Computed example of a mutant assay.
Amino acid sequence: MSRVADAGLSRLAFAALVAGLAVLIGVVVWAGWTYPGYDHTRQFMSELGATGAVTGRTVSIWGFVPNSVLMTVFGVLAAWILRHSALAVTACLMLAAFGVGMTGGGVYPCDFECSRSDPSPASFRHDVFGGVGYLCAILGVGLASLWARRSDAPGLARLGLVAVIVSVVGFYGVIAEVERAGLFQRAMESAIAVFMLALGWMLMRGLRSGRS
């Protein structure tokens, strides 16, 4: 009975993740097209939801927040499905924390154009939530990759290693605000998303933790 319930939860988790990513991609593409002069390679996604931006409230409330909440749901459900492995649970809860961090980043938008000079309290919280969320995601992917290696899922483990490397480089680009910071951010978020999709797909296909 437990296996049947977990199979249903795995489908729900994967559906939540796919829906969340679809919302994010749709809103970012729409907002980038609507925002005058916006450059996806040079500007952060958060600028689309920034205070004073033409797309600000719509992107934050109807894009960033729903996507992040659904990612949190995925992480929590995945942790329950893999509850027989402490390592897997920790990894999935880190991915859920990533969703929580991104939710906070949506609730508290950055200042116009995400300027860091004399930031408002909301902009400061945005940076804290976003930064901690990204670090949780990188840690979560790394731990999940280690668990996958121990669980006879070498393909997922290798994908996780690549995702961690791309994410670390992307995170550096975001923090350092390099010229193509938008591209670095999108590479990081894409790597994390691809790994989460792969994990969700494998859970739906029956990947489970062995009992302790």
Score class of each variant (00 low, 15 high):
109 P>L: 05
97 A>G: 07
87 L>F: 01
171 F>S: 10
179 E>S: 14
105 G>A: 09
171 F>M: 14
138 I>P: 00
153 A>T: 10
77 L>Y: 01
113 E>W: 13
189 E>Y: 13
181 A>N: 09
185 Q>C: 11
176 A>D: 04
127 D>Y: 11
132 V>D: 04
179 E>P: 03
167 S>M: 08
156 L>Y: 03
82 L>C: 09
146 L>P: 05
175 I>A: 13
190 S>G: 14
157 A>P: 00
91 A>T: 11
91 A>V: 12
141 V>E: 06
132 V>Q: 11
97 A>T: 11
171 F>Q: 10
191 A>Q: 03
139 L>W: 10
106 G>T: 08
169 V>A: 13
151 S>C: 05
149 R>N: 06
123 S>M: 08
78 A>Y: 12
120 S>H: 06
118 D>A: 15
171 F>I: 09
130 G>M: 08
129 F>T: 03
92 C>V: 12
136 C>R: 02
167 S>Y: 12
174 V>C: 04
155 G>L: 08
135 L>H: 05
85 S>L: 03
136 C>S: 08
77 L>I: 12
130 G>N: 13
108 Y>A: 14
185 Q>W: 06
89 V>F: 02
142 G>L: 03
99 G>Q: 05
92 C>D: 15
137 A>Q: 05
90 T>Q: 14
179 E>L: 11
98 F>Q: 12
81 I>S: 00
97 A>L: 13
153 A>V: 11
176 A>W: 08
174 V>N: 02
142 G>S: 07
84 H>Q: 14
150 R>M: 13
190 S>L: 15
140 G>K: 02
164 V>S: 07
106 G>R: 00
122 A>W: 11
131 G>N: 14
190 S>I: 14
140 G>V: 13
182 G>M: 04
116 R>S: 13
101 G>I: 02
89 V>W: 04
102 M>Q: 13
118 D>G: 15
158 R>W: 08
180 R>H: 15
157 A>T: 06
91 A>R: 01
103 T>S: 09
131 G>T: 15
79 A>H: 11
99 G>E: 06
116 R>M: 12
146 L>S: 13
87 L>R: 15
104 G>H: 00
87 L>C: 11
97 A>W: 01
126 H>K: 12
138 I>H: 05
